[in-house]
Design a binder for these strands. Structure first.
Lengths: 342, 342
DNA sequence: GCATAAAATTGAAACGTTTCTAAGTTAGAG
DNA sequence: CTCTAACTTAGAAACGTTTCAATTTTATGC
């Protein structure tokens, strides 16, 4: 029991106890090499005896920084986002940053609120995946952003760093693989054209048919949302078509869950009844009844890169032009595709 | 284009422009009902024209709070934690709090680092699931904690609020169900006895046998870790036993993924070759080849309750004794269990 | 031992709020 | 019209750091 009323010690207490000035204590903490070893040890002794810890709030105020970065996404329960978060966190934490996680639930209003929050001294930077590349509110905020930001897989005509995935070639490859297996009635379910992954995936899908000189099955393109419900609904109607597809590309993490649920409900099995290709690794994609053939992308590297881009801006020289870094996808062969039945 | 060099406006600028004192501006912002309507509108006009936003860092410093809560867990890629985070976030956000997400990767050192971080002015409170209830470093920090905290599913002999799950009755019920299906060689794979879920689950498992007057299959209790790898390893050896179990309880989210991988690798199918019970809802548990029978718990309610307990402490009166709130589990019937073959 | 340069330290001034006391203003009662 | 009480407001003092100019101490070279 040291003291009865021990309000938290401040740097002034340390100065008093060690018999030096507050400036010296501060320097001992931040640039110890500029203080005489003898003094340093006095200060350190005082710090120990008082159990002093600098008040982070005061530091933030004075340094005009918070060592905090906001990660803004629609849903952390999406395993891809969770993995991405982990990669970003690992990279930033070793530089002393902590992460705010802000879920927007796909709502433009929450997105706007999150950006407003982060703007004014709550975070030093942000990494985000916005819900709609055309949303005026969000665009406005991004334009007026006072802190550095990195976009994940989104395309905005602004000077903002971005880390992208080459979805189109990935989808082209996957679609082509199905075509070579003899499939013609291939469906794709993915995000809407209001976000880059939706646009690019559909583009790759279409290109594959065009390059193969085949008609594009426009009626099988379902491109509106990344949600599990959307995947479920669209898969359900696709499976009930008179001439139903022989293969489905579930291009989205959550979509896959919905698609599988629909298949289960309709008693359709993979790959016997229908071929299936997924996007991004996930428990379910890798385990289902067996591993599903999927279009993978290096999520850890993507996260790490985003963090590094942000760090470059945070570490002072804000001067370089916005950068866009792209990562390719890889088709991982699982057991969910069979040659089409004659 | 309003100004060329517009450093961020401060409350002093607002005071100057609106012709009142800084104190009045502050009151206009925080307790508008104490300022004359006339004055208020002058101030608001100035705020608008300057595009003034209070600096959060300065507010934090002065108010000695940050409106931030830390959520400390081992891995956000665990879908249960992700769901829990969402519930907590929803509850806290509407009171104006933001959440730090800190992943400890199950490492005691990272856990200690996270607690230290949060202690000194970075967060106003914390909600956490620690990795080991016996770890001296963590216990020490918890004992000296200067901010309110809520433990999730952990049992520590300290005055700390906690939200718990009644794992034992849940496991007893699940085990009993298997026993009634004729199973005797039932295995359980779960966490170690260093955390409450591990202890309680094993306890419930054992009790079920005892109450049924049956010998407890001690050789089939694998209780060491919640990781997917552990699940994989233990399932692999269990499946290779000469007299292998006829049912496995994969008591843990990640464990289930490991167990399923092992089964897949060994060509064992559920439920034909072996019965399976899981814990907690997840994509994989609900979709596998069909929904797996599982011991569910109300994750949203658990998260919400934890948030509410914390809010009670944050909202001033720190006075009530520590509270422990328990939630029951429910057995959800899937199709992963069959009567044991004669 | 002195002059000078280098190293170390001091002490005060920020940083942008909130809050508190004192002072000023307004309204109602007599 | 005056007095008092109730509102409002002004202005300064924190909050706990960092930083910077000024000063003091120490080291170096001759």
């Amino acid at each position: 029991m040291t003291k009865v009323v021990d309000k938290k010690a401040t740097i002034r207490d340390v100065a008093r106890v060690s018999g030096v000035s507050v400036g010296t204590v501060s320097r001992s903490l931040n640039v110890p090499e500029t203080v005489k070893p003898e003094t340093l040890s006095k200060v350190r002794a005082a710090i120990r005896s008082l159990d002093f810890q600098p008040d982070v709030r005061a530091q933030n105020m004075r340094r005009r920084s918070t060592m905090t970065v906001g990660f803004v996404i629609d849903d952390i329960a999406n395993p891809w986002h969770a993995s991405c978060f982990k990669a970003i966190d690992a990279e930033l934490r070793q530089k002393g940053y902590s992460l705010y996680l802000m879920s927007t639930h796909g709502q433009a209003s929450e997105e706007a609120a999150a950006l407003d929050m982060l703007q004014h001294g709550r975070a030093d930077g942000m990494i985000m995946t916005i819900n709609n590349e055309q949303d005026a509110r969000t665009i406005k905020r991004l334009k007026e952003l006072r802190i550095p930001a990195v976009l994940l897989d989104r395309d905005i005509p602004l000077e903002i760093d971005a880390v992208l995935t080459e979805h189109a070639p990935g989808l082209r490859q996957a679609t082509n693989y199905l075509i070579e297996l003899g499939h013609r009635r291939i469906a794709i379910i993915t995000a809407g054209s209001d976000i880059r992954p939706g646009r690019e995936r559909v583009r790759g899908f279409v290109e594959a048919f065009e390059r193969a000189g085949l008609p594009v099955p426009r009626d099988l393109i379902r491109s509106q949302s990344l949600s599990a419900d959307y995947g479920f609904r669209e898969a359900t109607t696709l499976l009930q078509m008179p001439e139903r597809p022989t293969a489905i590309i579930a291009a989205g993490n959550r979509i896959l869950a919905g698609v599988l649920r629909a298949m289960q409900q309709q008693g359709v099995s993979v790959p016997q009844d229908i071929s299936l290709i997924a996007c991004d690794r996930s428990d379910i994609a890798m385990l289902y009844p067996g591993p599903i053939t999927l279009i993978d992308r290096p999520v850890e590297e993507i996260g790490r890169t985003a963090a590094q881009l942000l760090l470059e801006r945070l570490d002072g020289s804000n001067a370089r032009p916005a950068q866009r870094i792209s990562f390719p996808t890889h088709l991982i062969m699982g057991g969910s595709c069979l040659p089409v039945r004659r």
